[in-house]
Structures are given as C-alpha cells and as structure tokens.
Amino acid sequence: MSSPNHQDNRAVQQDARAWKAFTQSNYTAARRWITSPLSQGILGPKLSARHLVSTLETHPGLASKDGTPCLGNDGYGGSSGWNLNNEEGFARLCLIADFLRLFTPTSGDDNAKISSYELKHTAERFLGQYCTEAAYISNGELIWAAAALGLPVTGQSYGSKNLLIGISEAEHRYMRQLLNDPAPRAHHHRPAGLDFLQEMLPRCVNGEILSEQWDKPSTVIEYSAFHLWLTEQSRRNDRVGDFTSDYIAGVEMNEHKIAQSPSDLLEILAGISHSPDAYDSMVEAISGWYATSPDSEPIRRPMIENESGSHAGYGAGPGSIERLVFRCPCGDGQIIEEHENIPGFREHDHWFDCAKCKGEWRFAENRTVRDWAIIPR
C-alpha cells in the first residue's frame, strides 16, 4: 500500500505534467507553480491542475466545439487564447477559486445572475489587496475557476464574452459594498469564510504552508416570524406596505439589521433618518403584528439614565429613591420608572413622560413595575 506522502507526491507529479503540457512550459517550472503556497487552497481543497485542464475539455458549456476553444483569456468565445506560462497564472486561478468559495452557490443555472465581468472586478479588488498576482484577473480566468468549482455558469447573451455565475447575489452585494464607501452597516449577508480568508491570505503571500483548515458552517440566516410577517406586509397597497417595502430593501442593501422582533424594528428606525409618517406607519405595522400574534413578547425600551439618592424618611428611618429613565418609542420623550424605598412609605410606579407615546402605547398587563413592557394601544 502506498503511503500518503507517496500518493501526494504522485498527484503533484501528475498535476505538473498536465500543467506542463497545457502551458507548454517545462516540468520543473510547472511543478514549482502548482506547489506554491498561494496555490495550496484556503477555503477548500487544493485546485488540481488536471481538473482545471479537464474542465476546459469536458464542461458542457465550455468544452471546445469542432476543435475551436469556447473560452479564452477575454471570456466566452474569446480569440485571445491563454497566457498562463508563468507562476502567477496557476496561483491566480487557485486564489480566484478561494474567493469564489466565499459565496453560497445558487440552486441552478436559472438562478445564475452575477456577470462574470462584474465578479472578476470584485475579485480583483479583494484579492489585489493581499497579492499582486491577483491585482488583475481576466474574464476567462474567472469563468474557468467558477466552472472548475462546479458553480452554475450560463447565460451568454448575443455577442457578449461574459457569462452569468451562480452565486448568492446578497453575499456578492455585501462584498462590493465592503470594498466601496460607504461600507455596509449590517452584516447578515457577510460570507461565512471571509474572516478566515482575510486572516490566511497574508500568511500564504509570505510563503507559509497552512496547518489550519476552515470548517464551513452549516448554519444559514434564520428569519423570525416577525421578519417574515413584515415581508408579507410589503405587498400591501397602503402606507404599511410602503414602510415594510423600505424595510425589506434596507435588509437587502445591508443598510440595517434584520428585525427579529418589534423592539428591533424600533431600534432600526431610531438609527436612521426618517419622516414622521414613517414612524406612524411603523406603529401601525407593529399594532397589526400584535393583533395577529397577541402572545408575542412586548417591547422593552433602552435605559438612558439611572439615578438613585438617599432620603431621610418620614420618621421610620431613612430610605432611597430610585429613578430609571428609558427612551420612549418616538424618541422625543421618556418612560419613567420610579421606586420609593422608604420605610412606611413604599411606592413603585412607571409612566409615559411623552404625550405622543402616551396616546399610542400602553403598558402590557400582568407584569411588575420593574418588568414593564409596552405594546401599541
């Protein structure tokens, strides 16, 4: 039985011979290129030179037709051929593959919507921060790496050298925003492997062979019943429909987080510029949610002040008065919680110190003063 080291060495030899033949280079150079630290694979297995060459020969959408190559440096149907007879060529394909591994694949060719030309620019901007080998990526290289990974590659339009690549639009949009100004303000669409790739790329550039492996998480974004309900309301033809449509657009564009609860929705609106009508529409939406889901957790507002002072008392000994101030829903007033802890005179109370909120909100029933929460009237 062959040892693992012998098998690995044999695979390197086979890859070197395949790459030598494809690039018409010499064996020593080809072996050096495919064993470069930049080619080792960060978010997945090392990309095989034999598999890369086979992809061009057997991929149903890219294989040569009548002896004419379908893919070249400049893209699908390109006539430029390939310019890979250098160390950077193979390493660049491996780096592109690691970049593409960031994204969740789509479920089929019909859902492939990201242009290879747009995606290659995203890859250039991201990878070029770390290594000059990937500061320029050809359209054909991007398509080739995507096909080698088994991503959906389809959708050539008449006269275009670009193809559509099947990766998550939301995750790609996040990466585009991350590389531009302003950066995304929410991170629910952040690719799972991004932190690991950002940490390991500089080490590979410095010539290190990595011992760490990335364990791809199986978790996906979980949407609460409240968020899904808001999504349904976006189809309404009224001001609640307009408000929830704007909310959904903000989630998709990474402008704010996902509202898992009505409390989250209040927090989101408080953090962005909005009109009085937007606030009123939100209150109407939240009221509709509680009407359909009366057992949902009521809303607790954030504390903005906590004061406590001593009191001489009324003859039975000294005590204290505790006053807690919370932000009201509209943001123009306060919710007050007060506790008079004086012997013989103990009182606990809470109230709205805001005329607008007092008319629109009420304290939920069957809760203590310290455990208060609110719902729309």
Rank of each mutant, 00 (worst) to 15 (best):
D8C: 08
A11K: 13
Q13A: 14
W19P: 03
R31I: 03
W33R: 11
I34R: 07
P37R: 12
G41D: 01
L43Y: 01
S48G: 02
A49V: 09
H51N: 14
S54N: 12
S54W: 06
H59C: 00
P60D: 07
G67N: 08
G67Y: 07
G77T: 02
G77C: 05
G78V: 02
G81P: 06
N83I: 06
G89N: 10
G89C: 11
A91G: 14
R101Q: 07
G108T: 12
D109R: 14
R125H: 13
F126N: 04
Y136G: 09
I137M: 06
Y158N: 11
R176E: 14
G193A: 10
N206E: 15
G207A: 12
S211M: 11
S211G: 11
D215S: 11
P217S: 07
S224P: 06
Q233K: 15
S234Y: 01
R239F: 11
A249T: 12
N254K: 00
I258R: 10
P262F: 09
I268G: 04
A270L: 06
G271N: 15
S273T: 14
S281H: 12
A285R: 02
I286R: 04
S287L: 04
S287P: 00
Y290Q: 00
E305G: 12
G313T: 07
G315W: 01
P318Q: 10
P318R: 10
L324Y: 05
R327L: 13
R327F: 02
P329V: 05
E337S: 10
E338G: 03
A355I: 11
A355G: 08
I375C: 05
R377M: 03
